[in-house]
């Protein structure tokens, strides 16, 4: 293809700048908000670039409210919602849940995806179709009965319940992402391993899995991200402060008229950092995984 002409180049560059501005606008908002002092936030309501910046908001969140007593003097800034005092607990819970969900969906997903693309029995193909449909099941339909059952069996307020619910909900998606990766490997590799005396399962573990490392990485990252973002599942199943996840803490600030925007933005920024870093580092894998999970069979 010929390169674009000079005028066209200028127009394309302007279009690119617009898109970049669009992507970065909310990012600029959260960064700006989190760096503002309370004084600037309220007194200088026209300022986009704050005349003075501060790290106080991050310190306030990271010390779970301890820091405030020493430095901040104004009366309104002494307000601290209870849930913010559980920042590290919530961060830890989110991490445990996301890692467990990733591990479970990868393991079970790989086992199932392999049987679908390589063993090719009639019912494993049905399973693939079922997984495709299962991806469309609204979480809210599942959460109402899971809440009722969890309530009567005393399973509410636990990390295990949330992990199982999220893993089960995401498992079809992991199978859909992994299946195309397995399918893209030549089956001759397996045949060769089997001639050398490997069982079919042995060939899967020793040949297919190591060769699918990029696919497993892609699937793993996406599972971690979706689980880290999940709000509705823990929100319905857990209410105890000990079992809060980070999204739950964020959602509890909604409608709290006393919370300051600068503290809220600092918390939002801290909670989105892990997945943003993951996506930027492993971009290639995420791109492939998302594409693989949507089309191809």
């Amino acid at each position: 293809m010929n390169g674009p002409g000079r005028l066209q180049r200028q127009l394309l560059n302007i279009a690119n700048l617009l898109v970049i501005a669009m992507i970065l606008f909310p990012v600029a908002a959260v960064v700006q908000g989190s760096l503002m002092t309370e004084k600037v936030l309220h007194s200088d309501i026209h300022a986009v670039i704050p005349p003075e910046v501060t790290m106080e908001n991050f310190l306030l969140v990271l010390t779970q409210g301890e820091h405030r007593e020493e430095t901040q003097t104004s009366i309104t800034s002494t307000y601290m919602p209870d849930n913010l005092r559980a920042f590290y607990r919530a961060f830890g819970n989110s991490l445990v849940i996301a890692l467990s969900v990733t591990l479970i969906t990868l393991t079970l997903g790989a086992l199932s995806a392999y049987t679908i693309v390589r063993l090719r029995l009639r019912w494993t193909l049905w399973l693939l179709q079922l997984n495709l449909v299962a991806r469309f099941v609204p979480i809210i339909v599942l959460m109402i009965p899971l809440f009722v059952v969890g309530r009567s069996t005393g399973m509410l307020n636990s990390l295990t319940g949330v992990i199982l619910a999220e893993a089960g909900f995401l498992l079809p998606y992991s199978i859909l992402i992994l299946a195309p990766y397995f399918q893209s490997l030549p089956s001759e590799l397996e045949d060769a391993a089997r001639v050398d005396g490997c069982t079919r399962f042995g060939a899967f573990v020793r040949i297919i899995l190591p060769l699918s490392a990029p696919g497993l990485t892609a699937c793993g990252v996406i599972m971690f991200i979706v689980s880290w973002h999940e709000l509705l599942i823990p929100l319905v199943l857990n209410s105890d402060l000990d079992y809060m996840t980070l999204p739950m803490v964020l959602s509890s600030l909604v409608g709290d008229t006393n919370i300051l925007f600068n503290v809220m933005m600092a918390l939002a920024l801290l909670s989105l950092l892990p997945t943003v870093v993951l996506v930027l580092l492993l971009q290639r894998y995420v791109v492939h995984g998302l594409a693989a999970g949507a089309v191809k069979g």
Binding site: N16, V19, P247, V254, Q283, V286
Partner: peptide, 27 residues
């Protein structure tokens, strides 16, 4: 510039929906 855009394009996908909601409360 298209290459810069390509790198940034996935950024919103990494933002937790509820964090996105809070950010837009402020916006």
């Amino acid at each position: 510039l298209s290459r810069v855009t390509r790198v940034l394009i996935l950024l919103p996908y990494a933002i937790p929906p509820i964090a996105n909601g809070l950010i837009w409360i402020y916006i």
